[in-house]
Amino acid sequence: MAIQLSVNLNKIALLRNSREGDFPNVETYGKLALDAGANGLTVHPRPDQRHIRPEDTRSLAELVKAYPGTEFNIEGNPTAPASGSYPGLIELVRESQPDQCTFVPDSDGQKTSDHGFDLKKDAELVAPLIQQVQNLGVRVSLFMDPDLEQIQLAKDIGADRIELYTGPFAWAFEQSEAEGQAVFQVHSEAAAFAQSIGLGINAGHDLNLENMVLYKNLPGLQEVSIGHALTVDALNMGFTPAVQAYKKVCS
């Protein structure tokens, strides 16, 4: 089965936010991605609204509904407080009704997500939030490192899927094929374990056209969320051809 490609639009929003006005328009690029064959869209709203804003999330949720068979994925920290017009992740999920919500343990000070949950510490906090979102009819995925004990805890507290954090894999792959293969093996073992206990498997962070040639062989991989590399490639090849190139490498 082909891996589902969810195009992350954060970098489009970041570019827009560097000037007054609404150019580039995030919804326009969401439509371009879906017209080019993307299986869904991902956004990661944050309280500081440095890229995706709550109004983007709401408009993209409506856009995805016009494309049957596609999915909308909202990522974020479920414990981050409301701030200004940002209502908090769970309230935004309630308003937008995405297909999936991916919990990510990031903080405002981070440039980007760089680690998975430590459920030995946070399980009691995260478990009821998973239940709240599932009660809204939304699938929940947890951003996780390839740690078997942590993955078991994700299952124990009710997650539907995990999203394996692929940053270390991407960095190792860039150093050498051997280093990339070594980290990929760790991820493969984690994915096989996740499958064995009934968790779905997503992946994301710094995946690109080169390293996806290897990573697409991950056991049971259902979905990848890709934004930064796709946007950079779009500078060279155009946005629609870039989405099509990533769709091809996911097949």
Rank of each mutant, 00 (worst) to 15 (best):
L153Q: 06
S59G: 04
V140C: 05
T240N: 07
A191S: 15
M212S: 10
A61V: 12
M1E: 09
T166M: 02
Q181K: 15
I130L: 00
H115A: 04
D56P: 08
A33C: 08
G220E: 02
T42W: 06
D160H: 02
G116W: 05
K247W: 09
G204C: 09
T79D: 10
L14Q: 15
D108F: 04
A182I: 08
A182S: 11
I157E: 06
V183R: 08
A36R: 04
V224C: 03
P168G: 01
G227E: 11
V249T: 08
N217L: 03
S251R: 12
S176V: 07
A190L: 09
S6R: 09
F169P: 08
P241K: 03
N77I: 15
F72V: 14
G88R: 08
N208Y: 11
A13H: 08
S6Q: 11
F103Q: 06
I162G: 04
G200Y: 04
N25H: 14
G167I: 02
L199C: 15
G30R: 02
H44G: 01
V224Y: 04
E71C: 10
L14T: 15
D233H: 05
C101S: 11
G76C: 14
G40N: 03
L153I: 10
D145S: 01
S141T: 02
I226S: 03
L230S: 03
D147W: 00
S141G: 11
M1N: 10
V93K: 05
E174A: 13
A66W: 09
P219Q: 02
H44I: 06
E124I: 00
I74R: 11
F193L: 13
L164E: 10
Q4T: 12
N17I: 07
A182Y: 08
T70E: 12
A194C: 14
Q49F: 08
V140Q: 03
P105S: 01
P168A: 01
F103V: 08
L60W: 06
A192P: 10
R94I: 10
Q244K: 15
K121P: 13
M1I: 09
L230T: 09
G198P: 14
N17Q: 07
G30I: 04
Y246L: 04
G198A: 09
K31M: 11
Q185W: 13
V243C: 03
V213S: 02
K121F: 12
D160V: 01
H51R: 02
R16N: 11
L142T: 11
A194Y: 10
H51W: 05
T28P: 08
N10Q: 06
V133H: 00
G69M: 10
T28S: 11
L129G: 01
V186C: 06
Q175H: 13
D106H: 06
A191Q: 06
N10T: 12
P24T: 00
G137F: 03
N25I: 03
E20L: 08
V26C: 06
I90E: 10
N217S: 05
V186A: 13
A154P: 13
S225I: 10
D145A: 01
P128H: 00
